[in-house]
Amino acid sequence: MLRSMYAGISGMKNSQTKLDVIGNNIANVNTSGYKKANINFQDMMSQTTSAAQGAGNGRGGINASQVGLGSQEGSISNDHTTGFRQTTNNPLDFQIQGDGMFVVQGEGIDYYTRAGNFYLDNNGDIVNADGYYLQSVGGGNINIPENADDFSVQPDGTVTYNVGDDTIEAGQIALAKFSNPSGLEKVGGSLYANTNNAGLVGVEASGENGTGQIISGALEMSNVDLSEEFTEMITAQRSFQANTRIITTSDEILQELVNLKR
Rank of each mutant, 00 (worst) to 15 (best):
G33S: 06
I214Y: 08
N209H: 14
A148R: 01
V224L: 07
I253G: 10
H80Y: 15
S4C: 08
I173F: 12
G217M: 14
N90S: 11
N25V: 04
Y6K: 02
Q53K: 13
N162S: 12
Q47T: 05
K13R: 11
P91I: 11
T88S: 11
A7I: 01
G188Y: 10
I168S: 05
Q72V: 13
T17C: 05
I173C: 15
N243W: 01
G108P: 04
R3P: 01
G138I: 11
Q213I: 05
L260G: 05
A129V: 06
T235M: 15
D165C: 06
S222I: 09
I9H: 03
S216Y: 12
D20M: 05
R3N: 14
M5P: 01
N194V: 07
L120F: 03
N122Y: 12
Y111F: 14
N57Q: 13
S50L: 08
S206G: 13
N38Y: 02
A51S: 11
N90H: 12
M12T: 02
E220S: 11
G33I: 07
A176I: 07
D166N: 12
T235S: 11
N28E: 06
A242G: 00
R262P: 03
D79G: 13
G98Y: 06
L260H: 06
N57F: 08
E73S: 13
E73W: 14
G199P: 00
N162K: 15
A193K: 15
V203I: 14
G202S: 09
G140H: 07
